[in-house]
């Protein structure tokens, strides 16, 4: 009953699919992570200015994306953005086609989802700075911007790193859901392979292993960065 058959793995076609899928997954994860961190940085920066109307809008964005399924967000972007007008006319064929491809939709939706998580994490990182540190900076004559740039951000970014690791691994794992809107990443090719070979359990086990390895490498790398950037001796006493 547990005899697993991996003979299909010797087929170069399937090897190619797995490789291409893995590369696409990594590409999607990297791109959406980069945009998410950008969104998070600017969002948290804007929040720290404490402009009431801007904050209300940003918080709405954060709560909307944090409290709805990323899968549904992706489907929403995929199926509705083209119907509500985001279409262009293909210059070659003259047909009206969606402006955003499946990959673009996945990228946009994952970036927004990750960005919402990043804003929240960066905001709480900035808020967790002891008020006394801020007071010391003020008494040394730092301006608002100087304080932000030279003291708050360097310290807060270290405080945020563990949360950022969580978000980035979460985002990496969530890229698998892009297969539902036919983005040709690892999960998508997995489906292709077991449709061909009917070796569902074997394919899923292998894919699961690939994902776990990649995510483990990512979180290991992040913890290395955390350690390299940690302030010597900081936080031991408290």
């Amino acid at each position: 009953m547990f005899g697993l058959d991996y003979s299909w793995l010797s087929d170069p076609v399937y090897q190619g699919w797995l490789l291409r899928g893995t590369l696409n997954t990594i590409g999607l994860a990297l791109a959406s992570s980069a945009v998410a961190v950008l969104i998070g940085t600017f969002g948290a920066l804007a929040l720290s200015l404490r402009i009431a109307w801007l904050d209300a809008l940003i918080e709405l964005f954060v709560e909307l994306f944090r409290n709805t399924p990323p899968l549904l967000q992706m489907l929403f972007f995929y199926f509705t953005l083209s119907t509500i007008g985001l279409r262009v006319t293909d210059p070659v064929t003259g047909l009206s086609v969606p402006l955003l491809s499946a990959f673009d939709c996945a990228l946009v939706s994952l970036s927004f989802f990750g960005g919402a998580l990043c804003i929240e994490a960066f905001r709480s990182g900035l808020e967790s700075l002891p008020r006394s540190v801020n007071e010391a900076a003020r008494s040394l004559g730092y301006s608002r911007w100087g304080r932000f740039r030279r003291i708050e951000v360097p310290i807060a970014s270290r405080i945020c790193l563990p949360a950022l690791t969580n978000i980035l691994t979460n985002l990496f794992k969530t890229t698998s859901q892009a297969s539902v809107i036919t983005v040709p990443e690892l999960m998508y090719y997995a489906g292709q392979i077991y449709n061909d070979t009917f070796r569902t359990a074997e394919v899923m086990l292998l894919v699961l292993l690939i994902y776990v390895s990649l995510v483990s490498v990512l979180s290991w790398g992040m913890s290395r960065i955390e350690r390299a950037l940690a302030f010597p001796g900081y936080g031991k006493g408290h």
Partner: peptide, 12 residues
Amino acid sequence: NSPWLVLLFAML
């Protein structure tokens, strides 16, 4: 470290 979707498929 495993994606929820992949785990769900694997269990399926």
